[in-house]
């Protein structure tokens, strides 16, 4: 926990939507997000669908250019990289997508899928076939899978292939964008175990995006909670589960179903009314105040910044100012 590997400062990503002829509105998918990811840790990002967590993952890796903000990788400003440095950055950072069914080119064999990146970047891998087979073994697949096509695999196996593709580049930083949300629970468990083990083995730094709190808790050491384009609370994973500060985090954590009938029926639930605001027309002030049971006058006027409660806990809420 020394220097951050990746620092995000006030990152914004807006998508234009055309209204009339020339007038444009913006979907504020990511709207001023700052956080650090330290070497060797898994940083969890949790939030509901449409909160911008997927866009955040892609913008951090520059798969879409950010609208504003800064991204520092090992202290260097990624947005100022020249072409050569950019290619190097692409090699060192990888992503595993949510949908294993469309993230593999249906016309490539598994061998081609995995070897394409290293081959393109001229990475020396020794005997390519042996290299791919060793990767396949690492993700729990077999040698005879080498020359098969994606459609011959189940969802879980496809996700393993996608992970092998990312690992083939020997990355330092990997974004896992809901890697198991399209899979069945019994398959999910083995994939999560595998990612966790690989992370330890290879010393990977990662960002784990999910809507499933239990999964994020299992996977990551620190968690950022996102609500409509903004991180409202960052904290140590275990501490966050013990006590939530932001009213949204509190409601979110209290409404996840727990796979235990007695616990889940007895606990006190905070059910917040209404739905998240549209990321096009955000309310002035705090974006949670229309649903917030503790809303104060200031919440309607001014947007709270992330403030430090202690070294491990940041929260964006006027209650703690």
């Amino acid at each position: 926990m020394s220097e951050p590997l990746l620092s995000i400062r006030n990152l914004k990503k807006y998508f234009p939507v055309r209204r009339f002829l020339l007038a444009k509105d913006y979907v504020k998918a990511v709207d001023g997000v700052s956080f650090d990811i330290y070497e060797g840790e898994m940083f969890g990002v949790v939030g509901e669908s449409g909160c911008g967590k997927t866009t955040l993952g892609r913008t951090v890796l520059l798969l879409t250019p950010p609208t504003a903000g800064e991204i520092y990788y090992r202290g260097e400003d990624v947005l100022k990289y020249d072409n050569k440095k950019m290619i190097e950055f692409r090699r060192k950072t990888q992503i595993v997508f949510q949908d294993p069914y469309s993230s593999l080119d249906p016309r490539q064999t598994i061998f081609d899928v995995i070897i394409e990146g290293p081959r393109y970047h001229g990475i020396d891998v020794g005997d390519p076939e042996e290299f791919v087979i060793s990767l396949l073994r690492k993700v729990g697949l077999e040698e005879y899978h080498l020359y098969r096509y994606p459609h011959e695999f189940s969802g879980g196996q496809k996700q393993r292939i996608a992970i092998a593709r990312a690992l083939a580049m020997n990355p330092e930083f990997v974004v896992f964008d809901e890697p198991t949300s399209a899979l069945d629970v019994s398959v999910q468990a083995s994939i999560l175990n595998m990612i966790k083990q690989l992370q330890k083995e290879l010393g990977l730094t990662g960002m784990f995006i999910s809507h499933d709190l239990a999964v994020v808790k299992f996977m990551s050491q620190r968690i950022g909670v996102m609500y409509v384009g903004k991180i409202v609370e960052i904290g140590d994973s275990d501490e966050l589960f013990k006590e939530q500060l932001h009213p949204y985090t509190r409601a979110l954590f209290s409404s996840i179903p727990i796979p235990n009938p007695q616990k889940t029926r007895l606990r006190k639930k905070i059910i917040i009314r209404g739905e998240p605001p549209s990321p096009i027309h955000l309310p002035k002030g705090c974006r949670f105040y229309p649903r917030c049971p503790y809303a104060m006058p200031i919440c309607k006027v001014e947007e709270p910044d992330l403030i430090e409660i202690n070294a491990n806990r940041h929260v964006a809420c006027w209650l703690y100012r």
């Binding site: 798969l63 997508f97 990146g117 393109y120 593709r165």
Partner: peptide, 25 residues
């Protein structure tokens, strides 16, 4: 489709993505 984005994440050039991934499909 996501595989095109995956190819971008691998750092492949536009030409490679167009002719090796999109065209065959």
């Amino acid at each position: 489709k996501v595989y095109v984005e995956a190819a971008k994440a691998l750092g492949l050039s536009d030409r490679t993505i167009m002719f090796k991934h999109i065209l065959p499909n």
